[in-house]
Amino acid sequence: MIEIRDLGKTYNTGAITLEALKNVNLDIEAGEFVAIMGPSGSGKSTLMNIIGCLDRPSVGTYSLDGKDISSLDENELAVIRNQKIGFVFQTFNLLPRLNAMRNVELPMVYAGVDPVTRRQKASEALDRVGILDHAKHRPNELSGGQRQRVAVARALVNSPRLILADEPTGNLDSKSGAEVMALFDELHAQGSAIVLVTHDPEIGAHAERIIRFRDGEQVKNN
């Protein structure tokens, strides 16, 4: 599903150029559950942004479902983000003015789904993450764990085949974290590929495979 070849990312900040990613080669199969681990600043988020089609590599290629991302224009990337990928962020990134239901509806809004279907699918998604009874609450009326569940519901509502989660439990206590991880396990069981960044070995243990990074490079030992 994901094919990364000799990928690198450099940032030019003033005089210094910073190599956030160097020579990354990575394959992730459909339905696989992969954890990316490594110290802070090792380039995990940078890689996630590239996999999520939010950013482009400086060198190398990234193909998603056999399609080279560099050949696609911005609108096509937006469609991929909308249809094929679901994001879960460490800081939840819900829209504060919309209630849980409408936050979950948002990806379908951009997919052009009609309001009735949208409402129905959003309810189902909220139900799946066990938070349907809070559908009318705004993010600031929810606990961190509840917010992250809404975010997971939003990520899965368009039934993407790839879910990207950058430290999804980073802002949660261990109990809420475990609940969210249970959701990922369930999604994985239902066939979604999951790529998850974490510092926590216990969280990483949920994955089938762990990829370690250090200073922008893969640590090759497993």
């Binding site: 999520g52 939010l54 911005e74 609108n75 937006a78 469609v79 983000r81 909308n82 249809q83 994001f87 990134n93 819900l94 829209l95 948002l106 990806p107 951009y110 997919a111 939003r154 368009n158």
Partner: peptide, 16 residues
């Protein structure tokens, strides 16, 4: 700005 980023991440096109 952040709202715009979120909307883009979940599939909003620039024209949207």
């Amino acid at each position: 700005t952040r709202e715009i980023g979120i909307r883009m991440a979940i599939g909003a096109k620039r024209t949207d």
